[in-house]
Amino acid sequence: MSETIGMVIISIGVAFDLFGCIGLVRLPDIYNRLQGATKCVTLGTCLILVGVLVHSGGAMGIKALLCAIFVLLSSPTGAHALARGAHRSGVKLWKGSVMDKYAEDQEGKLDQ
């Protein structure tokens, strides 16, 4: 029984991974790609690891749970660092973007 539930959770996780990677290919600029990919792949991988916990339990399950918590904490931090690095290295937003308060404030700081 628990094996079936585990496999269902893993299947949902893989589906989210796939959505995230389609987003990585389809979306127009790096910030949007980071958005889609980070959200979907983080939840997808966490669901796969939780699925392992439900499926197997024991030592493997505990390690999977620790790994899931770690991915949940580290992945948004990595995305945050990447977005900041990309913006500071001068990557422009997509042409359809509405506003960019960050660039305005950075320019103001450079002028002083």
């Binding site: 991974d17 990585l24 790096i30 980071l34 991988t45 690891l49 995305a79 990447l82």
Partner: peptide
Amino acid sequence: VGIDILGTLVVG
């Protein structure tokens, strides 16, 4: 970004 996401996928 691709490398970052690939790393997370390998964990899965």
